[in-house]
């Protein structure tokens, strides 16, 4: 009988269990009713089975979101593990939906499930992609907005993974600032 290496038999376990959420903007319903948990997974193989199965972000109708968060964390500021945190926010222009959005989202997912942020991976809660007519947004959420070393390391790694040029800066906003903002955007606590 042929001997199969364990590699071919067992699924590759991830450090964390992750949950994919889908939000569809239906104004006739309550906001939370529009947020659906798709499924959760904790192996590389199950991640790909999910990713290859669902619609690409760039093909989602405007007003929809995908979120991938560690199991047990809901993709909203109000969650106990998000409320003291913040997000690195990447604003895309309209052309980037076709050129960059899907690549950016996949590279972000691979950073999350692969624990690419090394000793700061525990600071990462998840990531969100918002598909919007006025410009799509991708954000990476961390659990504590008062940890500059972790936040800067995570921001640099994110830019590097997405191959965002050095001269293009991205900003980190604390959720508390975003919640209480008066203007259109919250102030950046960090930039990289």
């Amino acid at each position: 009988s042929t001997l199969l290496s364990p590699d071919a038999l067992i699924k590759h376990p991830l450090q964390n269990k992750w949950a994919l959420w889908f939000f569809k903007n239906d104004r006739t319903k309550e906001w939370t009713a529009n947020l659906k948990l798709v499924t959760s997974f904790d192996t590389v193989e199950d991640f790909w089975a999910l990713y290859n199965h669902v619609q690409k972000a760039s093909k989602l109708p405007s007003g929809c979101d995908y979120s991938l968060f560690k199991d047990g964390i809901q993709p909203m500021w109000e969650d106990g593990q998000n409320k003291d945190g913040g997000r690195w926010l990447i604003n895309l222009n309209k052309q980037q939906r076709h050129s960059d959005l899907d690549n950016f989202w996949l590279e972000t997912l691979l950073c999350l499930i692969g624990e690419s942020f090394e000793e700061y991976s525990d600071d990462v809660n998840g990531a969100v992609v918002n598909v919007r007519n006025k410009g799509d947004k991708l954000s990476l959420w961390t659990r504590d907005a008062t940890r500059p070393d972790a936040i800067m390391k995570i921001g640099k790694k994110l830019k590097d993974s997405l191959k965002i040029p050095i001269k293009i800066a991205i900003g980190f906003q604390a959720h508390t600032d975003t919640m209480t903002k008066t203007g259109s955007t919250a102030r950046d606590r960090f930039r990289v």
Partner: peptide
């Protein structure tokens, strides 16, 4: 404790394995 992490290239290799 020890952490399980995966390189991007390895994850991409796994995409098409059966």
């Amino acid at each position: 404790g020890s952490k399980i992490f995966y390189e991007r290239s390895f994850l991409l290799q796994c995409r098409n394995s059966p």
